[in-house]
Amino acid sequence: MIAEAALSSEATGSLLGRWEARFKLPGLLMLIFSFAFVRDLRLLLPLLICAALIYRFSGLPLGYLFSRLRLPGFFLLAMAVILPFWSGQTELWRFGPLALRLEGLIGLLLITAKFTAILSVAVALFATTPLSQLTIALRTIGMPWLLTDLLLFTHRYLFQLAGDLRRMRTAARLRGFLANSLSSLKPLAYITGSMLVRSHDQAERVFQAMTLRGYGNTSLPLPVFRPALSDYLLLGAAMLLAAGFILAQYML
């Protein structure tokens, strides 16, 4: 995931890649939230420019962003079909029972711009931050250790279990199982149940092995770090931008 595909040398060497995660995460999160505050159409252009610049600082190719946007983009497509025709009173154009409405169109414009901007920054943030650094940053901004431990372990086993599930479904298919009607509910429930039993068994073993190596004895202190001037400057810039968007929204 974050490690393999995106963390190319360009990404790690880029401005965002060199920015200490413990400053980058709060900085960019604030910015992302300030994007969410925007409702004024005049702010959309600055918003998009800001997002584009940040993405540029990540050193990631544009194609990577598009590949990441494809999946959530389907949702946007659905909104594009619904909003302009259902939301609002001001009819711009009418075709039989269908009416194109101004408010819906504006809503769609807002959603599309904010969605694209937030996702671009999020992709830039996560693609330049390995999970290990991300968890340290999350703990620094106050996430309890129980959650960060859970995060690391879950990530460690996610792909293995997805593979287990795939092989179980393949084995079932070789015995003629096709998930093509509601009657497949029972075999699917059994497969899910078997997977939970397998995971549970494995968890016992994993836990025993971890206990033998001292897991749970002490809670690990966060590694100390001395931030560079650039870390502070970038955080300051992100905070200023975020404050700017929120202020502008309420002043305009």
């Binding site: 092989r167 079932a172 078997s194």
Partner: peptide
């Protein structure tokens, strides 16, 4: 497609045993 004439036993039996 399903061909019951060809049967395969998987390396890990846990991949195969799914019923209660």
């Amino acid at each position: 497609t399903f061909n019951p004439a060809v049967g395969m036993i998987f390396q890990h039996t846990a991949d195969q045993l799914i019923s209660p």
